[in-house]
Design a protein around this nucleic acid. Structure first.
Lengths: 190, 190
DNA sequence: CTCATCTTTCAGAATATTCTGAAAGTTAGT
DNA sequence: ACTAACTTTCAGAATATTCTGAAAGATGAG
């Protein structure tokens, strides 16, 4: 009986993790493969994964490759066996550090670059002196620039915070975060 | 000439924001509508949005509705005009507080509930005493439970941290985050 | 109450994403 | 160098998501 319970719990975890995939911007299968590797804690080969998740070889191969790219799954080998095995990072904080690292590189950094580009598309107030432009247009441009700057500043803070979390010194931040949630810094107090 | 530059910069911002949509788990149009409202800073009506983004009325209506649900766009009215106008939250930090609030409610809370359910599917070591179960199975179940507990703990910290950021007292955290990035707490120092 | 105006809904069309499976590619052993 | 074992690729199929537009549903003025 007990063996079944474990398998059932694993399947449920895989399903739940798979549902999160959409919100995280990765494909469902990729999340499921990761869930399987994480929750079993074992090094599995492509065929193991195909069979357990009922997916094609191509799909398994691509999902594994993506997980390797994200750095949250690593290759493993068994002696006397030519197959490649894969094992998921077992430290949850290390897992999320890797995710944060990748998302900064894939999303925040390019976004910052684009925002800078856009910032350069309209003249600053200073750079405009002398030109005969209606006040109303100047005003609109200034407001526009302020909004861009606000956004830029926010993502710069986010990027620095993320990099700090990810860095070797980041384990300190991990501790800080944990402590913060335990501390009672509640709003309504003398 | 200058008027064009502004429009062009706005279009570029809308496009860039739209590309981020996938990673954030919202639809492209929804992101574009938000971008338009944010970057123009104006209250626009459905027809304005339809025309500027070249989308259908249905699409516009649904996207606006979603943005209202997320709490990052609000209704506005002009006197002597029956149409509804919409304006985006202009404070970037308030915007992201709203996003964090929604994502906790939509993703983290349900995930925590599911993880707890899954945790209850396998017996704890304590609850197992007396039963005749092979050692190896007991061991597997214990490891499984530990992995679930690790994950559970992580998301509990994340949830508390998020709630604190979102709370009225959260502006303190905002300041803390900004300061953190300005402080030099670098790793390699005496 | 009726009309005119504006908003929402939703079935089907358009589009985008993900998956399959067979073929091509790679590698280790002999 | 050949072969068997294993992995990756990718065109097309399957699936899922998003969008359209017309019809139904509101709402307020007169």
């Amino acid at each position: 009986m007990s063996g079944d319970a474990l398998i059932l719990a694993q399947d449920r975890f895989i399903a739940v993790w798979g549902q999160m995939s959409g919100a995280w911007g990765i494909s469902r299968t990729m999340a499921e493969v990761h869930a399987l590797l994480y929750i079993t804690g074992q090094a599995l080969c492509t065929d193991d994964i195909m069979e357990r998740l009922q997916i094609s070889r191509g799909n398994a191969s691509m999902s594994i490759r993506s997980l390797l790219d994200w750095g949250i799954v690593e290759r493993a080998h068994k002696r006397g066996d030519r197959k490649e095995y894969f094992r998921a990072e077992q430290d949850v904080w290390a897992l999320f550090r890797a995710i944060v690292r990748e998302r900064i590189a894939r999303e925040v950094d390019p976004l910052l670059a684009s925002l800078h580009e856009i910032r350069d598309m309209t003249p600053t107030d200073r750079a405009r002196r002398g030109e005969a432009i209606p006040e109303s247009q100047k005003h609109a441009a200034d407001e526009h620039n302020k909004r861009l700057d606000d956004m830029l500043q926010f993502f710069q803070v986010l990027e620095k915070l993320g990099n700090r979390f990810v860095s070797p010194a980041g384990r300190g931040l991990q501790l800080a975060a944990t402590l913060l949630t335990k501390m009672d810094v509640g709003g309504a107090r003398p």
